[in-house]
Amino acid sequence: MTVAALRLDLDPLALAQRYAADPRAWPVAPRFDAAERWYHRLAAADDHEVWLLTWLPGQGTDLHDHGGSAGAFQVFSGTLTEDTVSLSPSGPPRITARELGEGAGRRFGSRHIHRITNRSNRPAISIHAYAPALRSMTRYRIGASGLDVVTVERAGAQW
């Protein structure tokens, strides 16, 4: 089955894995940018989208959600660390780190808050899939009162 013939009822991790398994079908070759993470949308529809991302050592995201979309990512090469936020009604937010190496994947639900960073000394490439397609992303920071909203970005305006 080619990437173009994917069934839309696949979960986001299966979608990311399918794209990771066929890099010859990617419409662009991965690029690396010393100033910031590089990304390119590989596929888009109302009910899903797929992104190709590259990460040089030290590059990463801030804490964010996916605006109500569920998602997944698959590490194509290198190693990435995902920090997930757990909220507690009686205490401060808790951060849990998970390292994912080449071939590892991770799915997450629509309320997931995380950041991804390349903490290794090698470049990394990953495939990210979201269902439905991203409409917004909220960026957060951990402050004195807990998890604070920094900004809400909208598809078509900020990316």
Rank of each mutant, 00 (worst) to 15 (best):
V28W: 02
R37H: 03
D9P: 07
D33P: 11
R18F: 04
L6R: 07
L6D: 03
L10F: 03
Y39R: 10
Q17T: 09
R31P: 00
W26G: 04
L13G: 00
A20C: 07
L10K: 04
T2R: 13
W26S: 06
D22E: 15
A14M: 05
A5C: 09
A14K: 05
A14L: 05
A29H: 08
V3K: 03
A43L: 08
L8Y: 07
L8H: 12
V28Y: 01
A21P: 03
P23Q: 10
A16P: 05
Y39T: 08
W38I: 09
F32H: 10
P27T: 04
A29E: 11
A5N: 10
L10E: 03
D33F: 11
P30F: 13
F32K: 03
P27R: 08
L15I: 15
W26Q: 02
Y19I: 04
A29L: 11
F32D: 06
A34V: 15
V3Y: 05
L6Q: 06
L13H: 04
A4Q: 11
Y19H: 05
W38M: 08
R41W: 10
A29C: 09
P27A: 09
V3S: 07
V3P: 00
E36C: 13
A20W: 01
A34N: 11
A14W: 02
T2C: 08
A34D: 14
W38Y: 13
A14E: 11
A14H: 02
D22H: 15
R41G: 06
D9T: 10
L8S: 13
T2S: 14
P23I: 12
R7I: 12
V3A: 12
H40K: 00
A21K: 08
Y39E: 00
R24Q: 15
P27I: 02
P30H: 05
A29F: 07
A21V: 09
W38N: 05
E36V: 13
V28E: 09
D11P: 03
P12Q: 03
W26N: 03
